[in-house]
Design a protein around this nucleic acid. Structure first.
Lengths: 181, 181
DNA sequence: AGTGCATGAGACATTCTTGTCTTATGTGAG
DNA sequence: CTCACATAAGACAAGAATGTCTCATGCACT
């Protein structure tokens, strides 16, 4: 029976986000497999990390596709984006915190494409007059990463209910905390 | 001449936030000292991490004091908070991402006190009618951490100008991205 | 100059992690 | 039932990181 690689990678992402210095043994235990099997699936720690990046970027790209960022109002696109990203939030948090990886240009390329697509969405919102123009699209993109990461972490830690994930992020990002006068 | 412990810790926080698996040797180089001196100042890796947490929490607490969170409007208090936190943003990012540490109850305690003070600020804003009540204070606190972390990372990476740090975080947090109708 | 002190550089043993291998167990297909 | 295959468990060596030590250098202070 083939091992579920994606399951392993999900467990690894969750663990390594919380404790980046985890050993291969700890990763294997977290995934519920033996170290030998982990090693059979991923040639070594580097290969594991790389697979983690690749799957994360691929799933993130798929989420962006599914969100149809260039359709409808920018605000609705943001809503769809957060909704689609939610299942991948663990990978996103890993990718954001593991800055160490982006020294490899190849991976940087994939990340930049994700970046550009989200930045373009915010820019579209500004040009259509939906979004304010005194916050740069680049910053808004980074802020979204931070909020999604915080959201994923809060849910995982039980500080916030999972069903509120999308609402909280979208509402804060779009409307802010100040009460409309 | 006594070595500048805080300088070492700042360099260590910056490096370890970017690459949590850095060796003691890399940390020493990043701080511009020898591994021997690093070891003389901090008995080992664990001691270094612990000192990092302690200084981070202490400075964060001091920033909260300086921000006078219970004076004036909640919005102004948030502004002061972000302004005071900015110089410590590197430590905050480290503390937020290094969740591994919070298994030690003692440290958890210090972090909870920080948490509570910020949460209380958001609650105050809600009770005074300044802030909307459909976003929980706990979530807003976590979101603030995420935004500050993203801001620090963006500035460090040159994606955003340092002078905009405070403005971007505060404006997004308070007002959101949607343009006021 | 001379003294005291902290540092930098490097050697060294120890410990931890990794990567590979072997063996036994369990499971599914024929 | 038997065979083929994948896995768990553990042994093992190689390599990396850590922690400790020594020694020489540089700097401040007298």
């Amino acid at each position: 029976m083939a091992v579920d690689r994606e399951h392993i990678l999900r467990a690894a992402a969750a663990l390594l986000t919380r404790k980046a210095t985890s050993t291969m043994d700890e990763v294997a235990k977290a995934a519920g497999i033996s170290r030998a099997t982990l090693h059979r699936q991923f040639a070594g720690r580097d290969a594991l990390i790389k697979a983690l990046e690749e799957l994360g970027l691929r799933q993130l790209g798929a989420a962006l596709d599914a969100a149809r960022l260039d359709e409808g109002t920018a605000a609705d696109a943001v809503r769809r984006l957060v909704a689609e990203v939610e299942p991948v939030a663990g990978f996103l948090a890993f990718l954001v915190t593991e800055n160490q990886l982006f020294e490899a240009d190849e991976m940087n390329e994939g990340w930049n494409r994700i970046d550009d697509r989200i930045t373009a969405l915010f820019r579209r919102g500004q040009e259509s007059g939906e979004f304010r123009i005194d916050l740069s699209p680049v910053w808004l993109t980074e802020a979204l990463y931070g909020l999604v990461g915080s959201g994923a972490w809060s849910v995982q830690d039980g500080r916030v209910a999972a069903k509120d994930f999308q609402f909280m992020i979208v509402e804060l990002l779009l409307g802010g905390v100040r009460r409309s006068a």
